[in-house]
């Protein structure tokens, strides 16, 4: 047990418990707060994985901006607690069963078939020996991925206009 592994296991437990907390909380505000904690643990995982730039983005954009928007809407609409009596009684057990099947399938695809790709992995590693952080991320973003980056700005503009148009009060 290396210190890294111990830290990983503790953080993973926090992340999973937060996800469960989000699912079972009756109050939507608690769900949002659990989700924020989950996002912060994921930001810490990004730090472990050598991606400090993404960790900061995760905290500012996800845990900050996006979740504040969620909390705003929850409190604005006053829908903290919602009477959740399921119309379809069998939906919950079936959902959990299907979730388990999904997890097993994912596990199978990732782990049962991973042996075949080991040579490709080493070749790929030799090809891309330099991975760094904000600097190399920025270089890649503004060279190889310049067009997607610009398209992203258009997407954000469209989303902004869309949100304004959708929430605008209709004139009677």
């Amino acid at each position: 047990m290396t210190p890294d592994l111990i830290a990983f296991i503790i953080l993973a437990l926090v992340a999973i418990v937060c996800a469960i907390g989000m699912l079972v909380s009756k109050n939507a505000v608690y769900s949002a707060l659990f989700l924020i904690l989950n996002f912060v643990t994921i930001a810490l995982f990004y730090l472990f994985l050598g991606a400090p730039f993404l960790a900061m983005i995760q905290v500012t954009v996800y845990a900050g901006a996006i979740m504040v928007l969620f909390l705003f809407v929850i409190m604005l609409l006053g829908v903290q607690t919602l009477q959740e009596d399921a119309t379809l009684k069998w939906q919950r057990p079936v959902a959990i069963l299907l979730g388990a099947v999904l997890f097993l399938e994912t596990a199978y695809i990732f782990f049962a078939r991973s042996e075949q790709t080991s040579t490709a992995v080493t070749e790929f590693r030799a090809l891309l020996a330099s991975a760094g952080n904000p600097e190399s991320a920025g270089l890649m973003l503004f060279n190889q991925y310049l067009l997607p980056f610009e398209v992203t700005s258009v997407l954000l503009l469209v989303a902004m206009i869309g949100a304004i148009v959708l929430t605008k009060k209709e004139e009677a």
């Binding site: 996800a19 989950n38 939906q91 959902a95 299907l98 979730g99 997890f103």
Partner: peptide, 12 residues
């Protein structure tokens, strides 16, 4: 695990 939980959340 987290993805599965998200999927279950959407369903339940």
């Amino acid at each position: 695990i987290l993805f599965t939980m998200g999927a279950i959340g959407v369903l339940i």
